[in-house]
Deep mutational scan, measured.
Amino acid sequence: MDVFMKGLSKAKEGVVAAAEKTKQGVAEAAGKTKEGVLYVGSKTKEGVVHGVATVAEKTKEQVTNVGGAVVTGVTAVAQKTVEGAGSIAAATGFVKKDQLGKNEEGAPQEGILEDMPVDPDNEAYEMPSEEGYQDYEPEA
């Protein structure tokens, strides 16, 4: 019985440690998101679009440190934060509304985080759909 109880105690310690790591990862992701939003706020009209992409990228980098179902929630929060940063930029006159959601080359930025393969159960990952990809044929 002692062996059984000791095993359960060790398992509990492992769960607590994993929860603490997840909590730490979420806190880091939130900190990076805040950094990115402050970065966007300090940019001029020309830099705002690039700044919004930076927020998304920093958040995406930190999301990889967070495991399990938390990833889905962090990704949703990050996307809403990026959308909010863009709205703030438009409201303050840093950028025109028609410039939001495009990178410096004018290509749409939507789907940055949505296409990231995420499995809350950590069982399997699927690649994003290939609808947006084109076949590449090298020139002879």
Rank of each mutant, 00 (worst) to 15 (best):
V74F: 15
D119T: 15
E123F: 02
A17E: 08
Q109P: 13
G73T: 14
Q62Y: 02
M5Q: 01
T54V: 09
L8H: 00
D119R: 12
E57Q: 10
V77A: 09
T33K: 04
A89M: 13
A56P: 04
A29S: 03
P117A: 07
A11Y: 13
T59G: 05
Q99M: 12
E126A: 05
Q109M: 09
T92W: 15
V40T: 02
M127N: 14
F4H: 00
V71H: 04
V71K: 15
G106E: 13
K45D: 00
T44W: 13
V49G: 04
N122A: 07
G25F: 13
G67S: 10
Q109W: 14
G101V: 14
Y136D: 02
V118K: 13
Y125G: 11
E114K: 07
A91D: 08
E104P: 06
K60F: 05
V15N: 00
N122C: 08
G67Q: 11
G47V: 03
H50P: 03
D135T: 11
V52D: 01
K6R: 04
S129R: 06
Y133M: 15
M127R: 07
E130F: 04
D121N: 10
G47Q: 00
Y136P: 06
T72S: 01
Q99Y: 09
A89L: 12
T22P: 05
A76R: 05
N103F: 11
T22D: 06
Q109L: 10
K96L: 15
V118F: 05
E20H: 15
Q99V: 13
G31Q: 04
T81L: 04
A53T: 01
T59F: 15
V26N: 00
F94M: 10
L38G: 08
N122Y: 09
Q109T: 14
D2K: 03
K97A: 12
A17V: 03
V52R: 02
V15A: 01
E123I: 12
E105T: 13
H50L: 12
V26A: 03
K34D: 00
H50G: 05
F94Y: 11
K21G: 00
E28A: 04
P138I: 01
V3Y: 03
K32G: 01
G84M: 14
S42T: 07
M1D: 03
E104F: 11
T81I: 08
A69Q: 09
G7I: 05
Y136Q: 08
E104C: 00
G41R: 12
F94I: 07
E126G: 04
Y136M: 10
G36P: 03
A27M: 09
Y39T: 13
E139K: 11
G111E: 11
L113K: 14
E61N: 02
E83G: 09
V82P: 08
Q99S: 15
Q79V: 04
A107H: 10
K58I: 15
K80V: 03
V15I: 09
A30R: 03
I112P: 05
Q134I: 13
A11H: 01
A19P: 00
D119V: 13
A107C: 07
G47I: 07
G86Y: 05
K45H: 07
V48W: 09
E20Q: 06
K80D: 01
E57T: 08
A17G: 08
P138Q: 12
K21C: 13
A140H: 05
E123S: 13
H50E: 06
K23I: 03
A17H: 01
A56F: 15
E131G: 01
T75K: 14
E110T: 09
M5G: 02
E46G: 04
K80A: 05
K32M: 02
D135A: 03
Y136F: 11
A27E: 01
Q109V: 15
E61S: 08
S87D: 13
V49W: 12
E139F: 11
A17C: 08
N65M: 05
G41I: 06
A90C: 10
G86F: 14
A89C: 10
T44A: 15
Q134H: 02
L8C: 01
V37P: 01
V40L: 14
Y136N: 06
P117L: 05
N65V: 15
G67V: 12
A107Q: 10
A11E: 01
Y125R: 05
V77H: 04
E114W: 13
V16C: 06
A17M: 14
Q79R: 03
E105K: 07
Y133V: 11
E83L: 11
P128T: 14
D121S: 09
V40Q: 00
T64W: 14
E104R: 09
A17W: 14
V82F: 08
K58S: 06
T44L: 07
K12R: 02
D135Y: 15
T75H: 03
V16K: 01
E137C: 10
V16D: 01
P128C: 10
P120Y: 09
V37S: 01
S87A: 11
E139D: 07
G31N: 11
A69H: 12
A76K: 09
A18H: 03
D98G: 09
K58Q: 06
T22M: 10
L38Q: 03
K23M: 15
E61I: 09
K97V: 13
V70L: 15
V40D: 00
A85V: 14
Q99G: 09
Y133W: 12
L113W: 03
M1E: 01
L38T: 04
K10N: 05
Y39D: 12
Q62H: 07
G67M: 01
N103Y: 06
T33Q: 00
A17I: 13
Q62R: 07
V77M: 15
E28W: 03
T64D: 04
A124N: 13
V37Y: 00
A107M: 03
K34P: 00
G106F: 03
P120A: 08
D98L: 11
T44Y: 15
E114Q: 00
G67E: 02
Y39Q: 06
E126H: 14
V63S: 02
E28G: 09
A19K: 03
E13G: 06
A107E: 13
V40R: 02
K58V: 15
E104K: 00
A107R: 06
Y125D: 13
V49N: 11
A19E: 00
L8Q: 00
V26Q: 00
E35P: 03
M116P: 12
K96H: 15
V118L: 07
F4A: 01
V40E: 00
G7M: 06
D135Q: 12
Y39L: 03
E139N: 07
T64L: 11
L113G: 12
G101S: 14
E137G: 15
K34Q: 02
E130Y: 10
V95G: 02
K45G: 06
E28K: 07
K45S: 12
V15D: 00
P117H: 04
K32A: 06
D2T: 05
G25L: 14
V49M: 14
E46K: 13
G132K: 14
A19C: 05
A19L: 14
Y133A: 08
V66I: 12
T75A: 12
M127I: 07
I112D: 08
L8I: 05
E131H: 14
K32W: 15
D2C: 09
T64S: 08
S129L: 15
Q79H: 02
K21P: 00
M127E: 12
V16H: 11
G7R: 04
N65P: 03
E61G: 02
K45Q: 14
Q79A: 05
V63F: 11
E83A: 08
V82N: 04
L8M: 02
V70P: 02
